[in-house]
Design a protein around this nucleic acid. Sequence first.
DNA 1: CCGCGATTAATTGGATCCAATCTGCTACTT
DNA 2: AAGTAGCAGATTGGATCCAATTAATCGCGG
Lengths: 224, 224
Amino acid sequence: MKEKSPTTQELVLRLLRTDILTGVLRPGQQIIQESLASRYGVSRAPLREAMKIIEGEGQIIHSPHRGYFVTELDLANMREVYRLREILEREAIRAAIPNLTDTEIQAIGAVADEVSAAAASGELLAITLANRRFHFMVFEASQMPRLVRILTQLWDATDVYRSVYFAAPGSMAHVARDHAGILEALRARDTDEVIRWQDSHRDHALTRLADQLDSPRRPVITVR
Amino acid sequence: MKEKSPTTQELVLRLLRTDILTGVLRPGQQIIQESLASRYGVSRAPLREAMKIIEGEGQIIHSPHRGYFVTELDLANMREVYRLREILEREAIRAAIPNLTDTEIQAIGAVADEVSAAAASGELLAITLANRRFHFMVFEASQMPRLVRILTQLWDATDVYRSVYFAAPGSMAHVARDHAGILEALRARDTDEVIRWQDSHRDHALTRLADQLDSPRRPVITVR
DNA sequence: CCGCGATTAATTGGATCCAATCTGCTACTT
DNA sequence: AAGTAGCAGATTGGATCCAATTAATCGCGG
């Protein structure tokens, strides 16, 4: 097997995503290209192309001749994202259920365990990523690549705040319960029940996140 | 009022969009950066950033070290786009109706006339753009910017084929009738009726487009 | 004659360099 | 003293240049 040759902008893309996710780059903050490029040890060229991608996903916005700024979500915006997720995830689940094989469901169960393991370790980034994999394994079974892409964008838009949510006490137990419920309903091939669990799961996250929106989060790391 | 200073990549962006829309760049074709850049009279740098945006909208795809290619939609993909449009446009209309003022509806009516005027002139590009404005004036009244953005992407994805559709004889009369129906239902604030018209409008377009997908379209202009 | 491998041309990816624009400060006018 | 014009520094936008990767052709061997 030949090893992958990661192009520089893919690398930068990953770095950018995690920096936004972990709060190194805070909402509202301007991104100084030179500074960030040297921080990543690359030139500005691949950074700018990577930023154009992130901009397309709505995580940063661009103002000509002024620069890029990390987007800041207000409550209305957040509610819109969750409303769209509600509509689209229902569609994804409906399309996915008939396609899901037993082995795939088993694999999804394994990922659920990974989430729990990550939760035990307390690694916020690991939890977020594992949780994402869990849900998207279902979505991807829909065989609707464009739908999956849109859902990815919607999840990306709120991921900045999601890690804060996971940090809240008691959230992890709630998540574990919902995941178990989803899994059980998947095994029974009970579409409506899966949707019910997923809806409640999402609603719970939204109310928690809405609370967090008032109290601004503290910086994790600051880049000059 | 100060005039706008269009940055180069915005210019390139517009050029790229119309080139894809009008078929100068055909589905499946590779985009040779140097060739296209010189055609636009610019360097490759702004072209590449513009392409990253278009890629995010799904109109072209990128393969590392190989290049950019204009995306080609198969029937399954096309059906997915229309299914997603169905779901999301319904949501947009539901959210929009309560917000629509009489003056706004009047303005939408004016745009419907523009579509007819464009249809009479036979200018395919003008028809496409006017038609788009008509529908998006409704969508934008939803006050859901993210939803509008996603819908824009979905419309973009099929616009390459839409002009072919408009060229089909009899289509224009059908379109005019549907638009009139939508307008009337808007004036009556009858949400379900608007959705019914919009659904039928869309379904008609899909069946026509599906036909076109078999017979490959002839090139309009070819760039070396 | 067909398949496989190496060399070469073409194209993309990344870095550096220069020009255009914005922002904040200073000084001047009223 | 307040406001505005203009100047200087910083930052972004665009162009050119060089390196890395791909694919295509040619040649060799089976």
